[in-house]
Structures are given as structure tokens and as C-alpha cells.
């Protein structure tokens, strides 16, 4: 009955709100932060939260809130571009494999996917940093490469079930080729799946970016990132535990928001759950 009162499901609203807050902070950080993000105030090291420093200051006297805002930018940018890589490469591959299902091409694409799955993103990141050195771009690559097989699989799976339907056969009888059918009939009908998977990969990307920058394989100083803020806080953890709490909370709330939004979107877009 809650459906009657809320036009949208509550988790979706909550998730979208959380996501919007952090995305908003990230965008805002381009124009304004409470303190310049690189500003160090040695006199004001390790201050607890106060009116002048809302979330306190870190070991070097950085304003934690300003760092968090710019950190949001790093996290979201890395995860978003990584999703973009996954979609840009994975979706066409998945569509192609489904259009030629059962062929050698399909088999090759899917086996290639399996192979990438054997290299978790951290291992890819390790390989890349071992060669090119650490950095945000390499983190994006490491996470993005791992996203490719995810999107390829979801696309292929969704497309395969559509290819058995009669409207695809009707389009074939109307003389349309596989590429055109994939664009006109397959892609619009798996868009739901891709949107939901996109939010999931987005949130996984934020977690992965945090992990990579925590171990020093992500964005390098002076670019702030949530993972490195946590790594920096670790040596001070008994002295200033709050430094370890805020960046973690930021990660949790962002990921939670994205996941709630993904679940909400899935329910909203699932034709089986939608009323006629």
C-alpha cells in the first residue's frame, strides 16, 4: 500500500538522495571548499571537529571536510570513467557475441572474459603499477578492464534471451541485419539491465578505488582520495580515531546510496514487477 502514497519506492529516493549529496559535494569542490585543499596549517594539526573545521584537521593540518569533498571527486571520477570503459567495450562485445551466439567469435569473447575474471582488479592494478607506476589513471584502467567482462556478460545474457523472441525473427524477416536489430530491438530492451548493472559497478568501483589508493596504487599526493586518507590515518588511529572514521563513512554512504538506488531502479524498471 506504500506504493499508493509514494510515487517512487523509498529505497530509490533514499539512495538517489545519498548519491546526489556526494555527487553534489564533488561538483561543488571544483568551485568551493571550506579551505584550500592543499592548505596546511601546522599549528592546527589533529584538531577535533569544530565550527571552523567541521570535521577537524589531519596530521598535516589539512581541513578534513575539504579533503573529503575533493576525495569524493576522485572516487566518483575514477569509478565513473571505469564504468564508461566497461560499457563502451563490454556492451558492444556482448551484443556481438549474442548476435553470433554459438559461433567461434562468441566462444572467443566469452573465454576472454573468463580470463579477465581470473585477474581481479587488484591484480590488474598491481601489474599496471609495476610497469607504469601508481596513479589515478592506472586505477581507472585496472577497474575499467575488470568492468568489461561484467558488462559483456550481462549484455550477452540479456540479449540471448531476446534473440529467441519472435519480434527479432520478425525483424529478420523484414530484412534487418544483426547490427541493426541489436541497436533497434535488443539494446532498448536490455537498457534496464545495463542501468542497474551500471550502478552496481559504479559502487564496486568506488570500493575498488578506495582499496587501491589505500595500498598506494591509486591517486598520488597531493590529490586527496578517501582510501589514502584512511591509510594516512592508520598510524594515528589511537590518537585521532575520528580521522579513520570520516573517510570510511563517506565511502559507506556513497556506496550504500548507489546500491539502494540500483535496487530501487531494478524494481522500478522490472516489467514483471510493474503494473499493467
Amino acid at each position: 500500500m506504500s506504493r499508493m502514497r509514494f510515487p517512487l519506492p523509498l529505497p530509490l529516493v533514499l539512495g538517489a538522495a545519498l548519491t546526489a549529496i556526494f555527487a553534489g559535494l564533488a561538483v561543488l569542490s571544483f568551485f568551493w571548499t571550506p579551505y584550500p585543499v592543499a592548505a596546511m596549517d601546522i599549528a592546527a594539526r589533529l584538531k577535533p571537529p569544530s565550527l571552523s573545521h567541521w570535521l577537524g584537521t589531519d596530521t598535516y593540518g589539512h581541513d578534513v571536510f575539504s579533503q573529503l569533498m575533493v576525495g569524493a571527486r576522485t572516487s566518483i571520477a575514477v569509478a565513473l570513467v571505469a564504468v564508461g570503459i566497461g560499457v563502451a567495450a563490454g556492451v558492444p562485445l556482448g551484443l556481438w557475441a549474442a548476435a553470433r551466439r554459438g559461433s567461434l567469435l562468441d566462444e572467443t569473447i566469452m573465454r576472454g572474459n573468463d580470463l579477465i575474471f581470473a585477474f581481479p582488479s587488484l591484480v590488474i592494478a598491481i601489474l599496471i603499477t609495476a610497469i607504469l607506476g601508481p596513479g589515478a589513471v592506472n586505477a581507472i584502467l585496472a577497474i575499467g578492464i575488470f568492468n568489461i567482462p561484467v558488462f559483456a556478460r550481462v549484455t550477452r545474457g540479456g540479449a540471448l534471451s531476446l534473440w529467441t523472441l519472435d519480434y527479432i525473427r520478425a525483424a529478420q524477416v523484414a530484412g534487418k541485419g544483426a547490427a541493426r536489430i541489436s541497436l533497434e530491438h535488443v539494446l532498448p530492451n536490455i537498457a534496464n539491465l545495463l542501468i542497474v548493472q551500471g550502478t552496481i559497478q559504479f559502487s564496486l568501483g568506488i570500493l575498488a578505488e578506495a582499496g587501491l589508493s589505500y595500498v598506494g596504487l591509486g591517486a598520488q599526493p597531493p590529490v586527496p582520495s578517501w582510501g589514502r586518507m584512511l591509510a594516512d590515518s592508520q598510524t594515528m588511529i589511537s590518537l585521532a580515531p575520528l580521522l579513520a572514521v570520516f573517510p570510511g563513512l563517506a565511502i559507506v554512504l556513497t556506496v550504500l546510496g548507489l546500491n539502494l538506488m540500483g535496487d530501487g531502479l531494478r524494481d522500478l524498471l522490472d516489467p514483471r514487477l510493474r503494473r499493467k
Binding site: L165, D166, Y167, A170, E184
Partner: peptide, 8 residues
């Protein structure tokens, strides 16, 4: 199949 014959 009247249900699978059309792109919804």
C-alpha cells in the same frame, strides 16, 4: 506467440 512477437 502474441506476447513475444512485438518489441514492447
Amino acid at each position: 506467440d502474441p506476447y513475444g512477437s512485438f518489441n514492447p
